[in-house]
């Protein structure tokens, strides 16, 4: 099994799961409240990741030219 570069993702996953650890379910339909909250938590993380990736690619491009 590959655990390559897995320290950071696992830390992030533990933090996200910590947020949802208290289970409190109601048995009726909802419009996806949990999905919206999850997006609000991971949006800034993956957005920052993407920004760094784009920035890094630009730096790489400059040095490979």
């Amino acid at each position: 099994m590959k655990f390559r570069n897995s320290f950071l993702p696992i830390t992030v996953i533990l933090l996200i799961f910590g947020h949802f650890s208290i289970s409190n379910a109601y048995a009726y339909l909802d419009p996806g409240t949990g999905s919206i909250i999850l997006l609000s938590i991971i949006g800034p993380l993956v957005g920052a990741g993407l920004a760094i990736k784009i920035y890094w690619q630009k730096i790489k491009m400059r040095f490979t030219k």
């Binding site: 999905s35 909250i37 993956v46 957005g47 993407l50």
Partner: peptide, 30 residues
Amino acid sequence: AHAKAQKKYEGKKIEKKKLGKMQLLGIVES
């Protein structure tokens, strides 16, 4: 985490959150 979040917040009222273009593109990328 998505499955857990669905269960935890089922039927709860929440405040609207903002997510910008880069964050939404990050979700698509992920």
